[in-house]
């Protein structure tokens, strides 16, 4: 438990900054919503003039921007990107930071197993991400209610927002795995940005090429907001794939970390 609390203490501040950033993004978008919803007809007309591949790539085909959930579903992409970067950065840092700061010798010479270290660190990242989701959802609910009088389906709103956590877990687990595979990571953020945006580009390709199998490999495709808005549910196939990926990455992390030689200082 000592490692768990130590980690929480170290990363609590950065969690607040990132969550604040997500809420700020949300506020900026929602401030535009009254204007956009009034001129929605104009907006939809404008969008219809885009090449269809582009509208599909941007995920604008099925979302109605005049409706609050439609608009929210569109802006949520940006929240998702920020959240994914934060999650992957956290997952990638949590074990590798000890190596970068050269504190791994201190920690690993303590009477504690490597499995226990990985578990404590995973639990701390998980707690931070859950906490972030809770703070964000409460904040988002308040912000949306303050900026519009439209009535929207609360369950769908919750489902959209919970997909944030499910995508974040994917990236956190992937970051964790990469951090034990790559021998020495000099800086976490550039790798994280590259990978998250790489997956986003895949998602844009996936959306513009209809009927592609790319959807299986990018987590951004697992929770299609327009489908959540339409059906009020997740697609079980993708939910299962997401879960398998997260568990797979995590199990591999344990196995590899247990066999890893700590680099000498």
């Amino acid at each position: 438990m000592n490692i768990y609390f130590q980690e929480l203490k170290m990363y609590a501040r950065s969690l607040l900054y990132w969550t604040f950033g997500m809420l700020l993004t949300l506020i900026l978008f929602m401030l535009m919503f009254p204007a956009i919803s009034q001129d929605a007809a104009l907006m939809n007309q404008l969008i219809s003039k885009f090449p269809p591949e582009l509208t599909r790539a941007l995920g604008l085909t099925t979302l109605d921007l005049s409706m609050v959930l439609g608009f929210y579903g569109y802006l949520f992409l940006f929240i998702l990107l920020i959240g994914s970067v934060y999650a992957m950065k956290s997952g990638m840092s949590v074990l590798s930071e000890e190596i970068r700061a050269k504190t791994a010798d201190f920690l690993l010479s303590k009477p504690i197993s490597r499995n226990a270290i990985v578990t404590a660190k995973i639990m701390s990242v998980l707690s931070l991400l859950v906490l972030q989701t809770v703070i964000y959802i409460i904040g988002a609910f308040i912000v949306v209610n303050l900026t519009t009088n439209q009535i929207f389906d609360k369950t769908t709103f919750l489902l959209i927002n919970l997909s944030l956590l499910l995508v974040q877990l994917f990236f956190a687990a992937l970051g964790l795995l990469l951090s034990v595979i790559i021998r020495k990571i000099k800086s976490v953020l550039p790798i994280t940005l590259g990978i998250v945006f790489g997956f986003y580009v895949l998602q844009m390709l996936n959306q513009s090429l209809t009927d592609s199998n790319l959807a299986y490999i990018t987590p951004f495709a697992y929770f299609d907001i327009s489908k959540i808005v339409a059906t009020g549910a997740y697609e079980s196939t993708y939910l299962i794939i997401d879960t398998i990926m997260i568990l797979g990455f995590t199990v591999l992390t344990y196995i590899i970390y247990n066999k890893k030689d700590m680099p000498s200082i």
Binding site: M10, A101, K102, T103, D105, F106, S109, K110, P111, I112, S113, I265
Partner: peptide, 21 residues
């Protein structure tokens, strides 16, 4: 049995690094 053994070991490495903050 590393975990158990390490209870009884005090280790001082040649280069010391701790959590800066």
């Amino acid at each position: 049995e590393g975990q158990e053994i390490r209870q009884y070991i005090g280790y001082l490495p040649s280069e010391v690094f701790y959590y800066d903050n």
